[in-house]
Design a protein around this nucleic acid. Sequence first.
DNA 1: CTGTTAGCGCATTCAG
DNA 2: CTGAATGCGCTAACAG
Lengths: 328, 328
Amino acid sequence: MKVTSKQIAELCGVTRGTVDRALNNRPGINEATREKIMKVAGELGYRPHFLAQSLVKGQTKTLGIVLFDMYNRIFSQLFHAFEAEARRHGYFVYLVLTNKDKALEIEYLNNLLDRKVDGIAMSPVNMGPTLDSFLKESGVPVVTFTNRVSAKVPFVWIDDKQAMKTAVHHIASKGYQRILYVSPPLRYKGKSNIYVPEQRYKGFIEACTELPDISYTVITDYDYLESLLRLIAESDEKPAILCSSDIYALDVMRFLKVNDIRIPEQAGVMGFDNIDILHYVDPALTTIDFHVDEIGRRAAEQLIASIQGRDIPRRTHVGYAIIERDSL
Amino acid sequence: MKVTSKQIAELCGVTRGTVDRALNNRPGINEATREKIMKVAGELGYRPHFLAQSLVKGQTKTLGIVLFDMYNRIFSQLFHAFEAEARRHGYFVYLVLTNKDKALEIEYLNNLLDRKVDGIAMSPVNMGPTLDSFLKESGVPVVTFTNRVSAKVPFVWIDDKQAMKTAVHHIASKGYQRILYVSPPLRYKGKSNIYVPEQRYKGFIEACTELPDISYTVITDYDYLESLLRLIAESDEKPAILCSSDIYALDVMRFLKVNDIRIPEQAGVMGFDNIDILHYVDPALTTIDFHVDEIGRRAAEQLIASIQGRDIPRRTHVGYAIIERDSL
DNA sequence: CTGTTAGCGCATTCAG
DNA sequence: CTGAATGCGCTAACAG
């Protein structure tokens, strides 16, 4: 079980220095003694003590990834790709979940630093100023996704603003002249890091100003479904309901169904994210797809590059595309 | 940043032994010197070096959890609860994904052992004999879920067999006399650890023999949807389609819809697992719910108890319940 | 009460 | 080519 390099040294009648040279095939050792040592080590099932190695080398081959939760499919997929890439490079990963608790996030980051992770990937819930200095002082490479922290810390995601603009133009091209924009997270402005919904919102507004024929209303209520119903009834114009995330679109569809409003005959619905469960809903939801796997993979890739001292881009955008289905 | 106990010792004019006594509030130290040391440590932002600590204490306060993937919602939920409980006890967790690759599973287990995790929780893909001796030799506490390994390694899950029996009786009580049982994983018998589908299958068969009026067919084909269609057409008797997991039930519902077979008018459908996305499908799927959070929590709880040298049960079953909805 | 010493298991000098 | 010595940062047992 727990055989050490010292024991191997004794068994082979050499010192630990020599054993080390053999094991890590370093130069300066007789081929015969190397083979003997390797043989003994193999027979004894020697495995280097990772902690001791880490302690002396100053690197743990471990990454930390900090996510909100695992309920959102986006994170499951992202983690999957991240972990695969990390493992490909010999890194293990600590996964910690903040549940969007700002104090917990800081605490967990500290714990990860204590454990001397070589790098951290995170979806931040704290806001720029708080995290910025913290991360800089830590001295550990970091990459972020979902919410951005600041210009200083690398960010891998999509161009939410541009993507949402594309969505609005798509809706307009289908003949809609009235859009109800649903984005409950906007309510947390100033209280939490809501970079993503804000970017999407900006894109929405920009597009609408470019399209003078479009009338629109923004819904950020907690009870957005009720508000929606009221708004739909207010006008005879058939609305397109554009949601900042699929999860809201899904709830909207359910709700409209219950209220006997047919999709897309009486109202169009469009989401954003293309989460995998859309596969099972009816009518099929039109949405925006982006390669979350690629985000996970590249976040890991860049983080590791950064650990190795290479320069990495401050911002990386992966592609997106409108997936036209039956709801709009 | 990187202040060590040695530096604090020098600054306070004492030795590291004394500093250690203060920091870990061990007895045998003057209250005045303790306070001084604590003060200096606080000002310098001293944080113990976790690796060094682990090395000397022989424990890492780290758990490993080995899962198939993150695509199945069950695992996301289970992990969520597991991580929360682990953190509550000061443990961090390495999450590794096997993608049901048997060789990878063994490799990852070895890596986790190298990293001296204090315990391992896993959803095994290898089969009993292979894992049993491996895990015993490792000397590390282990708990399993999903698939069982053997009588020797603790297992936290539900009583799949009994639950499936309940499902069949429920179907019978609704007046169905014909059941089509869908369970593609059964095809991997002997090639992979399919404890769960096997248990459910046993429960199904047992219940059917108890209910002589029921006729049934078991479908394990890769193209189970096509087979299903053929079987439905073979008889005028309205069938109940019982699936060993919700994911198959979801595909079945989609497929029946495409083929204009109305649920539940022309065929009943029932699933198993009550995964959260059922919330969004129509008609609402009747299924069996079990508390996967509780499984995650108790797995962590028991694993930690086992690490602390306490005895833990060889088998723990959490509850389940039929969720009656509109598909049957 | 405090200082000294000896590891934990390995990597990396520097001599020989 | 190999041995001996030193250190990573911390804990623990033994003196004083």
